[in-house]
Design a protein around this nucleic acid. Structure first.
Lengths: 183, 183
DNA sequence: TAGCTTGTTCAATTTCTATTGAACAAACCA
DNA sequence: TGGTTTGTTCAATAGAAATTGAACAAGCTA
């Protein structure tokens, strides 16, 4: 009895590889390692696992394969991959004749760091900084209406300045750090 | 009617200042700003608030004052300050004749970053890296017992190497980054 | 068109973390 | 000693975030 559909060499080798990832002890350790690294950036565990799996997969995988191999739900896989794609850690691969989306990890691990920095740290920083000017204003008002002593006002002002200075420094150095992080 | 205990100038000015922190709109904004910045490092909100309060206080505050002014429990205040002290963001101040512990924030905001990096990122990194060697071993075993093709083995090996390389780079650059971050 | 495959979204649930109240320990005082 | 003040610890609770099942949308096939 012949298989209904003849398997190409590529398909066979791919299936073998997936079977390996599913069975091997090393695989679990690899995914776990990668997962841990990505979790440093504050990613959910499931998302970390997805990246780990794809980072060590020599061929792109579909969503359903990711679900099956990691034992997570379609929903998690969908949201996880989307996030990783927007961060630039994964990329969609179009396989001709296939209706499924396939994903592969960029070898540049640093892309993940940069993505995380750009979407988590940076916006929070700037949204915080926007308020600085407002705070300084109400602080000056407090001084004028004698709610606060000149001395205390001076102290608070100096601390605010420190934050401003630090922020500027970070802004200035950020591109350099980003480049250095390019793993 | 005279107050039972004559207040020194210092005490009066301090009480005034605390009243200011309690009442002012600017205070809430300041604490919130600082809180947000510290939360970037993954600190609990209450801990962030403690740091924010002390960062903008011109005099050291006791635990009970922190509780009262932030409306948090003794337990949170105790654990929060302890963590901040071990990170080097706060320091205990001994006031002669007082039985309470007083705390003040170090003006060096970067100390917090370094503390967070040292106690959160660094250990996770190294504990992850320890496993690298182990993974490589089981990978080689898999190759020998023909569970995996030479090709796939090569691919996985290259990805592991990338992680190793990236880790080394981070280790090498960490001190430089730490210095640059010194706000 | 109906039926099938694939991916997304969202309310409900589970899981994890932060926070708290209360019991405890330590140091001081009278 | 007993009482008071201060700080710590921990089990229980409240709160936030991740995960999921299920309903939905979009695209293809016949």
């Amino acid at each position: 009895m012949r298989p209904a559909k003849q398997l190409s060499f590529d398909t066979i080798s791919k299936d073998k590889f997936i079977a390996y990832l599913l069975s091997s002890k090393a695989k679990q350790e690899m995914v776990e390692l990668c997962c841990r690294l990505t979790q440093i950036l504050g990613l959910p565990r499931s998302t970390g696992q997805i990246f780990g799996l794809l980072y060590f997969s020599s061929s792109p995988l579909s969503l359903s394969q990711v679900c099956e191999m990691l034992g997570i739900s379609k929903a998690s896989a969908s949201t996880g991959t989307r996030q990783l794609v927007t961060w630039g850690a994964l990329r969609k691969v179009w396989i001709p004749g296939e209706r499924k989306d396939y994903y592969e990890a960029l070898s540049d691990f640093g892309q993940l760091l940069r993505g995380g920095y750009g979407t988590i740290v940076k916006p929070r920083m700037s949204s915080s900084i926007i308020r600085l000017k407002k705070i300084e204003d109400s602080l000056n008002d407090d001084l004028k209406s004698n709610i606060i002593t000149t001395e205390d006002h001076k102290f608070i002002k100096s601390r605010l300045d420190k934050i401003k200075k630090g922020h500027n420094k970070l802004i200035r150095f950020a591109p350099i750090i980003e480049k250095m992080i390019g793993l």
